[in-house]
Amino acid sequence: MWLWFSKLGSPKWFYELSGKWLPWLIGPMALLLIVGIIWALLFVPPDYQQGNTIRIMYIHVPFASISLAFFPLMALAGTITLVWRMKLADIVAKTAAPLGAWFTALALASGSIWGSDIWGTWWIWDGRLTSMLLQFFLLIGVISLRSALEDAEAAAKACAVLSIVGCINVIVIKYSVDWWNTLHQPSSPFSLSNEAPNPPEVWIPLVIMIFAVYLFFAVSLILSMRNEILVRERRSEWVQQLVQAT
């Protein structure tokens, strides 16, 4: 177990293994994405209130749900960096931050476009929206702190601390702004406890899209992690061999 753990921390091992994983992630991702998008665009019945804007949900909800995972992920990676000094954890933390900013931005943009129709406004200082925006700012803070600190190890640890603090703060922000102002509907697109549960033709494609976007996140994270590994390990034997082989 311990051996496996320390092995996982080795960038070289991860690089080799992730190379094998990638096709198995990209394949299902493409499949789910194609099925999900066609289903969402063509087969989902228009909502009785929102009509065809419901199709925006199939992009917005997956992105919004994964955006919430970034701070916990970075805080977890940061804790591992601080406690066990695992190299790979910091690579995850470093590559996740910009991806998180992009995912959050897309969740905000799609939500804003959706809101422009159904709420009657592009932007409102609603609890959800505001906390997402602030999460976006905090992610930018983590990214800029990383780029400002020149010493890579100090940057890794500083970002780890900031991610942990930020994670707590994102939770507090979420509660405080919810309490401040809320228009956003509760996020239970497939809660079955409602008196009128959402029908399967609405939630099945949504589940498909959520899995597709999660896989997409995994693929893009692994791709940028591999690049980061190549840059960090550029002086090592195995990277030089790999470079010469191409």
């Binding site: 700012f137 930018i140 803070g141 702190l145 400002a148 930020g166 703060n169 507090v172 509660y175």
Partner: peptide
């Protein structure tokens, strides 16, 4: 950020969102 030369903006980006609550 104490070791950084120019840190005014970074400090603001880190601190201000956290002060929102």
């Amino acid at each position: 950020t104490v070791g950084l030369g120019s840190r005014g903006l970074i400090l603001a980006v880190i601190t201000l969102p956290m002060s929102v609550p």
